[in-house]
Each structure stands twice: as C-alpha cells, then as structure tokens.
Write a protein that binds this DNA or RNA. Structure first.
Lengths: 112, 112
DNA sequence: TCGATATTTCGACAACTATCGAATTGATTA
DNA sequence: TAATCAATTCGATAGTTGTCGAAATATCGA
C-alpha cells in the first residue's frame, strides 16, 4: 500500500523575515503590551477586554491601540463576538522569535 | 573536613526584571542594532568599529550611538584598546530573554 | 426605537529616538 | 609638538509612538 509522502511535520515555523522579526520585537518592547501578553497567557482562556483593562493602568483608547499593535504583529488573535472581543496568544509565534535569538548565540564565547 | 557549601553552579541567569527585559527588547527592536549584533556574532571574534561600520549603511556617529545602546542594555561588551574599540556579545544575556519569552508560551493553546 | 455598554477612531500632544554633520576628545606616529 | 586617525559628543531635525479625552461606531436589551 502506498505510504503517503511524509508531510511537513507539525508546524515548521518558516524562518522569520527581518521585517517580521523587528515588528515582533517592537511589539514586545513596550512594557504595557508585554504586561498585556502576560495577562493573556496567565488567563489560560480568551481574555475579555474589560478584564484586560482591569490589569493595566491605562485608558480604554490606549488599550485598543495596544491590542491593534499586538494583533498586527501577529502575536495575538482577537475573536470579535458581538460587543465583546476576546484575546488569545497566537501559538508558535514567540517560538519563532526565540529561534532567531538563540541563533545569535550559537557561537559560544569569543575570546574577550 | 568542612565541605565548602555548594556554590552557585556556573551561571544561574537570575530572573530578568521587567525593566531589564524591556531594555533588552528595545535594544533588539532596532533593525540596525540587530544587524550589528549579527555581525558581531558572525565574526566569532571581537569586531572592530571600522569593520562594524563597513557592514552598515550609517554614519560613524550613528554607529557610536547604537554601540552605546547595546552596551548599556548589557548585550555587548566593548573592549577599549587605545584608539580602537572591539565589540563582543555578552554571553548568556539573550538566553535570559529567551527564558522569559518561552515562559509566556508555557500554557499551550487556549481554546480559541 | 431608545438607551446603555463595549470598543474604536480622531485629533492632539509630549516624549523619545534614529540620523547626520560638525566639532571634540583621545591615542598614535612622524 | 604637530599631524593623523578613531571614536565620541553636540546640536539639530524628522519621524515615531504612547497617551488621553471626546466623538463615533457597533451591539445588545428593554
């Protein structure tokens, strides 16, 4: 019986472009946005905007701005459900960034 | 005979503070700086400013600025030797950041 | 439809930053 | 000491971005 050709294993992250890498790093480099990501991660389930807002000392307009940044950087997914929006981490994205960063350190300790 | 208390093993990365994490991410979030880091990493040995400058389309003043940023973020070490300055990656720093980032993704895929 | 609630958009402002040329500092060499 | 070369500092500028209040948009419930 014909064995199906081995497909791409689970989810090959597909090397990050420089532009995308920069976009991710910029999105992560704001403390509020990072805190927001942490809230989403800790929630373990889609986080509503109201809950997100409760964890940050910022105005709703500012939260909306940061959500847009995180979304367009591809770090989160926003499920829009009527009046409410729910935030989840996009899996694998950070892993791609981590790969790029660890590649920088592959060459051990150059003679100082 | 008194056994010396077990010392801290090689180099415990010592959890990154939020401020430091943000500083690192900001330093990495500039494309020129990232390219500079890549040059340093690829060199495998301390990189002179002149060589660094050759790899980037920027003025010397701008390079100097970026070097200062990377240095004060703790990402590189600058050995000043007379007229010349040599750049090396500080080992382990990126690894600390990587740990923080991967901690965000520990919780797998929340129900979208 | 009307009012309440959730989120976004708009307009503005302040702070920050990347960039450069010119001037400066510091070290080497003639 | 004078000239030269490497790198930094200074001053200025343009572009970016985080922040907010107010207004707009969208959804839901009465």
């Amino acid at each position: 019986m014909p064995v199906p050709a081995p497909q791409k294993p689970p989810a090959k992250p597909a090397r990050l472009s420089a532009a995308r890498r920069t976009a991710l790093l910029k999105a992560l480099a704001d403390p509020r946005r990072f805190a927001l990501l942490e809230s989403i991660a800790k929630a373990g389930c889609p986080l509503g905007c109201a809950q997100a807002l409760a964890t940050l000392p910022i105005a709703a307009a500012t939260l909306s701005h940061h959500i847009k940044e995180l979304e367009s950087a591809g770090l989160i997914h926003v499920r829009r459900e009527g009046k409410f929006h729910f935030l989840t981490l996009r899996p694998g994205v950070l892993q791609g960034l981590i790969s790029v960063l660890s590649a920088l350190e592959t060459i051990p300790t150059p003679t100082t």
